[in-house]
Amino acid sequence: MCCNDCECRPLGFLIGLPFALLATLLSLVGAIIWVIGIILSCICPCCFCVAALINLALALIRAPLHVIEWFTSKIPC
């Protein structure tokens, strides 16, 4: 979150909740991509594109947290 005095913003949380649920579905897709990427990197560790795929999957997994943080930061105290 941000470093200002107002850290409790329930309105931003409630507005961002549907988008966070959608981001959670994306994170499940990211988890599946991550597992497939790990398996591919074990089979052929020389593939650098698999590492990029794993980084993309990790970004998708972290998406719900980023969405909620972004929405709560946009709502004034």
Rank of each mutant, 00 (worst) to 15 (best):
R62K: 02
I75H: 06
I43K: 10
V67F: 03
V67N: 02
C42R: 11
C44Y: 09
L14K: 11
A31S: 13
L40I: 00
I36N: 02
A23S: 13
I38N: 08
P76L: 04
I61G: 01
L17M: 15
V35M: 09
C6Q: 10
L53N: 00
F71M: 14
P76R: 04
C42Y: 14
S41I: 01
L11R: 14
S27R: 03
V35L: 14
L21T: 06
W70T: 11
A23T: 00
T24P: 00
L28M: 12
G16K: 05
F71A: 10
I68W: 05
I39A: 09
L26V: 10
F48K: 11
A63S: 09
S73K: 12
I75T: 13
L14M: 07
C6M: 02
I75Y: 15
L58G: 04
L11W: 09
S27C: 12
L28K: 01
V35C: 07
C42D: 06
K74I: 03
P64M: 09
L26C: 08
L60D: 05
L21V: 15
R62C: 08
N55V: 05
I43N: 05
P10L: 08
I15K: 09
C3D: 15
P10I: 07
G16N: 05
F13V: 07
M1L: 11
S27Y: 01
I33S: 02
F19P: 02
T24Y: 02
C47S: 13
G12W: 08
L25T: 05
